[in-house]
Amino acid sequence: MPRVKTLRKVLNPPLIKGFKPYGPESGNLNQEPVNLLFEEYEALRLSDYDMLNHHQASVMMGVSRPTFTRIYASALQKIARAFVEGKQIAIEGGKVYFDSDWYQCAGCGCNFNNPEREKVIESCPLCGTRQIISHDFPDETNEENAKHWEYVCVCPQCGFEQEHQLGIPCNHQVCPKCTHKMKRKGTPGCKI
């Protein structure tokens, strides 16, 4: 049986394509860059920039904890090698998909995503109304479901529920009991 390749979720691509060393010796060194994969960049970002623990970070990336630890260790090794040997770092490649959040407009009914996570979505890009709700999986929504949505975030793993905070996508919330990513109650993929 061939091993199934799992895709790792990366929230946003990095701002830059890599790093270059500088200093008098840097021109004489081997120009072959160290290749930091997108998932290695993301592991470092979640763990040491967003300060998540390895369990939370593995949930965010959709991988098991041992896998996360392996990706993270590889990221550190590569960066250390680039520093010590004075090599460039190229951030590219890897088995990843980029993930953005979906919203639905209560005014015109359209669905749209937010490709720039840093920006908060305040209004519908199509009709301009400010009445928008966040959710996952626009393709599987049907009218019936949409009408019965409650403004509740639920943990798909243990069932913990909390009130939805407007403006914060449910899947940005991490379950306080089991640290699984939360979902909006009643959406597909959420069996509770």
Binding site: N12, P13, Y97, F98, D99, S100, C108, G109, C110, N111, F112, N113, N114, P115, E116, P125, L126, P138
Partner: peptide, 14 residues
């Protein structure tokens, strides 16, 4: 994923 990586927004009118 392609549009996400280019930061192009998708607006779906079904």
């Amino acid at each position: 994923p392609l549009l996400d990586s280019l930061k192009i927004q998708m607006i779906v009118v079904k």
